[in-house]
Design a protein around this nucleic acid. Structure first.
Length: 270
DNA sequence: CTTGGGACCTGGCTGC
DNA sequence: TGCAGCCAGGTCCCAA
């Protein structure tokens, strides 16, 4: 599932292909993917626009256009962006051609992905919490954010309005690394635990970016290489396997309806 | 306002 | 072997 490290990788690998280029053709195969504009207006409004920059905000990909409009994409669960695919599979939802003759295809098996063309990025991403890898995301910032919420720490980590970009699998890896049970209340963590959590958030995310993301489910990079972050997973998607630290069976518990994997010995509830 | 749960979506898996 | 039904989880929406 594309979370912060996967979207960061896609951004890094598409940026040199699209920066400074203009859209020459835009085709929507699945009207449901487009928000904020009718299917007919969307391609017309985008063609001839030049891409000044490509950014990531949380799990969103933002094309900054010379007109100051923004094209925003969210891959949700199964979306992928493919550079110059030889063939279109049946999951192709939209295709974008550029002035340098490259083509990017948005393919999405489960049709949850979304595309916006907006005057202002804040209309789409304005409510997101801080970027966990930015300098603004200090230990104090995390502590202040957590003390206001009487919710499971796992729910806090994946709430995009609290912290942007962490999803289910990296939240599990972060909590395992920090030795914190997913059901501990956010505002009941000790200062030491928050300090460790803060460090683990950054380490897990940076490590995954360095591995170009985790190719579980459908995630694949624009030029079809896989990411390898999943090879380092200790608990995410490891139900029934043994904890690499203590050998206890990895357990699964539902938090906010999301499967959460943890080691009951390394991450005690009390 | 805070928190929790369901809907959306479809391929893959489980169990009868 | 066939198929109903559950599960996956990012985000939005609604209810208590």
């Amino acid at each position: 599932m594309p979370e912060l490290p996967e979207v960061e990788t896609i951004k890094n690998e598409l940026l040199p292909w699209v920066r400074g280029q203009s859209f020459t053709q835009v085709t929507i195969f699945d009207p449901k993917i487009v928000f904020c504009a009718s299917t007919e207006e969307f391609p017309r409004n985008l063609v001839a626009q030049r891409v000044e920059n490509l950014e990531r905000r949380g799990k969103y990909l933002i094309f900054n256009l010379a007109s100051k409009q923004v094209l925003i994409m969210h891959l949700k669960m199964t979306g992928v962006l493919l550079l110059n695919p030889r063939t279109f599979d049946s999951y192709a939802r939209a295709a974008f051609s550029f002035s340098n003759d490259i083509q990017i295809v948005f393919s999405d098996r489960r049709r949850l992905g979304a595309i916006w063309l907006a005057e202002n990025a804040d209309a789409v991403v304005g409510k997101l919490g801080p970027e966990p890898l930015s300098d603004d995301f200090t230990l104090d910032a995390l502590a202040q954010l957590l003390e206001k919420h009487h919710i499971p720490i796992k729910a806090a980590l994946i709430d995009q309005n609290l912290i942007a970009g962490i999803g289910n699998m990296y939240a599990d890896e972060i909590l395992f690394a920090a030795k914190i049970h997913p059901l501990r209340k956010a505002n009941a963590l000790t200062p030491q635990e928050i300090q460790i959590l803060h460090r683990c958030i950054r380490e897990i995310l940076w490590s995954a970016i360095n591995s170009k993301g985790a190719s579980v489910s459908t995630y694949i990079r624009p030029e079809r290489q896989i990411g390898t972050a999943q090879l380092a997973f200790k608990v995410a998607h490891q139900y029934g396997k043994l904890c690499p630290i203590c050998g206890t069976s990895i357990q699964r518990v539902l938090v906010r309806g999301r499967g959460s994997y943890f080691c009951p010995n390394c991450q005690p509830l009390l």
